[in-house]
Design a binder for these strands. Structure first.
Length: 497
RNA sequence: GGCGCAUUCGUCUAGCGGCCUAGGAUGCCACCCUCUCAAGGUGGAGAUCACGGGUUCGAAUCCCGUAUGCGCUACCA
């Protein structure tokens, strides 16, 4: 029933009403990992049974998100499979057939009462201090036969049991026992009056038809699981292993939603987070391998993932920690791969062409090692590299002149450095370093003062890669131009003062 | 209201009766390294294991209450 080595079939069954968010992605990740871990299949099924909530383009977004994050499905839209179609809206006959079966068995019945009538009746009952309606089978004032004869629309409802127990065997929580007599659950609609099935009907039928072995879903489904279990029992089907996954909360401890900063996964990707970092971070909310291992490759996760180690309690999504993971993955990334991943960000920033030339990519590849270990997001690449491509147009004199240093001294440093570096015949880190350290000593200044002034002159900013590697990457000619520009920018201020 | 789920450092977690004066990670602070920023190294602060009873020689770990948070209570998923 649990951690058997038999191949599992799991599924992600979203309704096409929006994007894939961080919260739901974590549940998908668990499902996907379990299928891969057991050598089974991961299916994608579109639960588009609510025509009122249909959002055009949502399915495409959803599919694109899964592909971008790298969770490929074995059966479903685009790839097909033995249980096609994988859109519930195209499986209506199947649900109708099974619905008829339940009706024939007497566990489901036609209900002609309308929603507004139920509301009305319940309101009256509440006023009289009576409990709300649970069954809609034979109600005073509702003539089912007459309505049927008139051809009025009806819903098919499941007759919930009113005695005994319904037991949900949740893998990570153990058995959860519901007393049918005190459940207080109205007979749920299986088939809506428009002929479409509800979630309860469609999902159970499909999970059975598609031979799903492990159902992973958010723990908000625990409350309604008696319906699902009673459907399984009514059919006499074997239940899948139920795994109710804890939810992911936002910073404020509130459930992640569009309101509370739950962002679509594509936004994280656009922001420069790596799929592998997102996956690695996300899997650790609610699951752990042991007491210290955190950084794991996808392959290791597939090998190590174990449903029984999922925690039952909700976890807060911590963007700071994700950022740390992203940095780890960024630093470990092969330079040639990083170039490819970073190029689009540089293109978007206008630093290189939209369709980068070989020369541009080569230049980026040359520069990347200088900043790779400082990156936490791919999107930070433009701001850390742009000065290599664009000469500083002006200088902030307050920044160009380091603390405890006189403007005149800076001009002197710039001029001396210009002279000394200009004479160098070999332009490499060792040579520039030797020259500049000697110069510092000759001027009787501190390394920090000199190097900072030169850094600002060369890059226009106080934060950059190492000075020497930066100068070398910039090239001798360009370095000299920038030093001289900086000196010129500073000189007028001397005249004034 | 009813039913259900959850509860260990700010956050993610380890822990499944003695190894816990509660371990790791992240974040924070300090120091080291150092031309800046990161990275890296070292150290530190940070959890009376929600609270109260019990069981036991012994409980974060088992049982029962209480509190708090959350979910469900749709012809939504």
């Amino acid at each position: 029933m649990t951690d058997l080595p038999t191949p599992a079939r799991t599924r992600f069954a979203p309704s096409p009403t929006g994007f894939v968010h961080i919260g739901s992605l974590r549940t998908v990740l668990f499902s996907w990992l379990w299928a891969r871990h057991t050598g089974g299949q991961f299916l994608l099924r579109i639960e588009d049974t609510d025509r009122k909530r249909y959002v055009p383009g949502a399915e495409e977004q959803l599919i694109a998100s899964l592909q971008a994050i790298g969770m490929q499905w074995d059966e479903g839209p685009l790839v097909g499979g033995p249980h096609a179609p994988y859109h519930q809206s195209q499986r209506l006959e199947i649900y109708q057939r099974y619905a008829a079966e339940l009706e024939a068995k007497g566990v489901a019945y036609r209900s002609y009462i309308r929603g507004d009538e139920i509301e009305q009746l319940n309101q009256e009952r509440v006023e009289r201090g009576e409990p709300k309606l649970l069954s809609f089978r034979d109600l005073p004032g509702i003539d089912n036969a007459a309505r049927a004869a008139a051809g009025e629309p009806y819903t098919l409802r499941l007759a919930m049991r009113t005695s005994g127990q319904t037991v949900l065997n949740d893998l990570i929580r153990g058995p959860i026992v519901f007393e049918n007599a005190t459940l207080g659950m109205p007979d749920p609609v299986l088939i809506k009056s428009d002929g479409f099935p509800t979630y309860a009907m469609a999902a159970m039928v499909d999970d059975h038809e598609m031979a799903i072995t492990h159902v992973l879903r958010g723990d908000e489904w625990i409350s309604t699981s008696p319906i699902h279990i009673q459907i399984y029992e009514a059919f006499g089907w074997q239940q899948p292993v139920w795994i109710h996954v804890p939810i992911v909360l936002g910073n404020d401890g509130k459930r992640l939603s569009k309101r509370h900063g739950d962002t679509s996964i594509t936004e994280y990707l656009d922001a420069g987070f790596l799929p592998e970092a997102i996956i690695n971070y996300l899997v650790l909310i609610g699951w752990s391998y042991d007491d210290k291992t955190e950084i794991m490759t996808i392959q290791e996760l597939i090998e190590r993932f174990d449903l029984t180690r999922i925690r039952p309690s909700a976890g807060v999504f911590d963007r700071e920690k994700l950022l740390h993971f992203n940095g780890v993955y960024l630093r470990a990334m092969a330079p040639e791969v990083l170039v490819q991943r970073i190029a689009p960000y540089l293109s978007r920033a206008g630093i290189i062409s939209a369709a980068p030339t070989e020369a541009e990519l080569a230049r980026v590849a040359q520069l990347l090692p200088l900043v790779q270990e400082r990156l936490k997001l791919l999107s930070e690449a433009p701001e850390t590299l742009d000065f290599f491509f664009v000469r500083p147009q002006s200088y902030d004199l307050g920044v160009l002149v380091p603390k405890k240093t006189e403007p005149a001294q800076v001009v002197q440093v710039l001029q001396a450095a210009h002279a000394a570096l200009g004479q160098l015949t070999s332009w490499d880190e060792a040579s520039t370093e030797a020259v500049l350290r000697q110069l510092t000593e000759d001027l009787g200044l501190k390394v920090g003062q000199v190097f900072m002034a030169l850094r600002v002159a060369a890059t226009g900013r106080t934060v950059s890669p190492g000075l020497f590697e930066t100068l070398v990457a910039l090239g001798q000619a360009e370095t000299l131009v920038r030093l001289s520009n900086a000196a010129t920018a500073l000189s007028p201020s001397l005249v004034v003062s």
